[in-house]
Computed example of a mutant assay.
Amino acid sequence: MAVSWEKYPRRALQDKLPMKIPEQNPSRSLPVLCLLQKRQELMDVDHGLWAQKEEFQTRMVVLMQRREQLEQKKQELKGAFLRFDKFLQDAEARRSRAARRAAEARHGAGRQEAEAQRLRAQLEALRRERARLRRRLERLWPGARLLERVLGQLPEFQEVPELVARFGALADTLAALRLRERGLRAELEEARARLRRLRDARRDELLRRGQQRAQLLGRLEAARERALHWESQWAQIQNTAAEKTLLLGRVRMAALNLYQLVCQHQRQPPALAMEDTEGQLEQVKLFLLDRSALLASLPRSEPETL
């Protein structure tokens, strides 16, 4: 059956230490008995230390199962325990060598006492190390209790790693949402900037359109004034044309009457059309020139009667 690494130092210590005190000469065994008594005291202290260590290790194992975030610190503690185990093995080896030296040389009791003093110093150092580990455990214990209370309030989670994983996922989601929020805020700011630019462009366009409208209204007013002027001119032209048309009609009627009179005087039917006013005036002109020449050829005293 495999032995766990936590129990290995204790098992090795028990295997290497003698269980029975050998019978020796009372006069020579007093230092050895003292050494064995000190060694027994050290074993008792070690037993107590290992009992506390096993209890502490049990709690640490439970805490390791409940919270993965403390794995690194637990690995540090595990490394410390391994170093502690190695230290104990080295100490056991040194104690074994010291025992062999004591068996081989009984007169080395003084040196064994010095070794015992050194071991007691090492034991004191181990106690200080135990106190340090206990303080570390006390610092870590509130976090473990807090996780246990939170786990008790959340029945949907069975183990602390599930709770930690869930909160880790929520933290990642929150970070992603915050990143998305920053992106949306940037897009919103860009949209607002575009809106401001569009509003400025719209305002400039409205201003330009207003100026164009004012210009067009001015041009329209000027065009209306010109239209009124040309309408008045057109009315005047129409009135003048009507007068001229009336006068022309009268002239044409007069020319036609004269042409008809000339035709009657010449006893000839009218050969020209009624609309040929120029031809009629030409015929009247020729008739008048002919009569003028005739009158000029007659004496002044005998006027000819038409």
Rank of each mutant, 00 (worst) to 15 (best):
M1N: 06
A2V: 10
V3C: 09
Y8H: 09
I21W: 15
P22W: 01
Q24C: 04
S27C: 05
P31C: 03
L33P: 00
L36H: 14
D44H: 15
W50I: 10
T58H: 13
M60H: 02
L63G: 02
R66P: 00
R66F: 03
R67C: 06
E68L: 06
K73R: 14
K74S: 08
Q75E: 12
F87C: 06
L88R: 07
R94T: 03
A98E: 14
R101G: 04
R106F: 12
H107T: 09
H107W: 13
G110W: 05
Q117L: 04
Q117D: 06
L119D: 05
L126H: 11
L126A: 06
R128T: 06
R134C: 03
R135M: 05
L140F: 03
W141D: 05
W141R: 05
P142Y: 00
A144H: 15
L146H: 15
R149V: 05
R149H: 12
Q153P: 01
L163G: 00
A169R: 07
L170P: 01
D172G: 12
R185T: 12
E190V: 09
R196C: 03
R197M: 04
L198T: 12
R199C: 07
R203C: 08
R203L: 11
Q212N: 03
R213H: 04
G218P: 00
G218E: 12
W230M: 02
Q233I: 00
A235I: 00
Q236F: 01
I237R: 10
I237Y: 07
T240Q: 05
A241S: 02
E243M: 04
T245N: 07
L246G: 02
V251R: 14
R252A: 07
M253S: 12
L256Y: 04
L258P: 00
V262Q: 04
Q264N: 09
Q264G: 06
Q268G: 00
P269A: 08
A273Q: 06
G279W: 01
L281R: 04
E282H: 13
L286Y: 07
L289W: 13
R291Q: 15
S297F: 07
P299Q: 03
S301W: 11
